[in-house]
């Protein structure tokens, strides 16, 4: 059975090496600072945690912030953990790319860029992947095509308390 490392454990390990890197620690994840990301990831990969395998990389639009979620596995120790980074920048969120640490992040970062509009600095080939070049907007963002009838999320369901979106279209982005 894979041991699911709590975010606090991972945060503890990271703090021993990089004291200021961790922002927050929850049972599911540890939130780290974006500018320390490469260091932290290299440490996670080569350190005692041995997270050599990057399961999944994805972005979440929290409306007030963009989060990138990393799920990692150690094959030799059979354990798993998750870290996150976050930014409140909306127009052009920029994060460091982890392709130098895990080459497997290549396509997943391109996917996140394509659908969520997140720029990964240091990515060797950051282009649209599913959509065509010149596609307007970032479709997985919650405010994509912010117009009536195309309201994202729960407002589609009658009687459901959805989160109110502010009038922010990103079609021109």
């Amino acid at each position: 059975m894979t041991r699911l490392l709590a975010g606090q454990d991972i945060a503890h390990q990271i703090e021993q090496k990089y004291p200021e890197a961790v922002v927050d620690a929850q049972p599911e994840f540890a939130m780290v600072k974006a500018d320390k990301l490469i260091d932290v990831c290299t440490f996670l990969r080569d350190g005692d945690l041995d997270f050599k395998f990057l399961n999944s990389l994805t972005a979440v639009d929290r409306l007030d912030a963009f989060e990138i979620v990393y799920h990692m596995t150690s094959i030799s120790l059979n354990q798993m953990g998750s870290i996150k980074i976050s930014t409140s920048e909306r127009e052009k969120p920029v994060f460091p790319s982890v392709t130098s640490v895990w080459p497997g992040a290549h396509l997943q970062e391109r996917e996140a860029y394509d659908l969520m509009g997140i720029v990964f600095e240091g990515h060797p080939d950051l282009r649209r992947i599913f959509l065509w070049e010149g596609f307007a907007g970032w479709p997985l963002r919650k405010d994509y095509l912010n117009m009536p009838g195309h309201m994202a999320g729960l407002e589609r369901f009658p009687g459901e308390p959805g989160k109110k979106l502010e009038g922010r279209g990103n079609v021109d982005a």
Binding site: S56, T58, V60, D61, H71, G153, L154, P161
Partner: peptide, 18 residues
Amino acid sequence: GFYIVSDGGIAPYRFHIR
């Protein structure tokens, strides 16, 4: 892998397929 974020509603807030 399926990564699902819920905001307590009846639909997923974020639905990602690995």
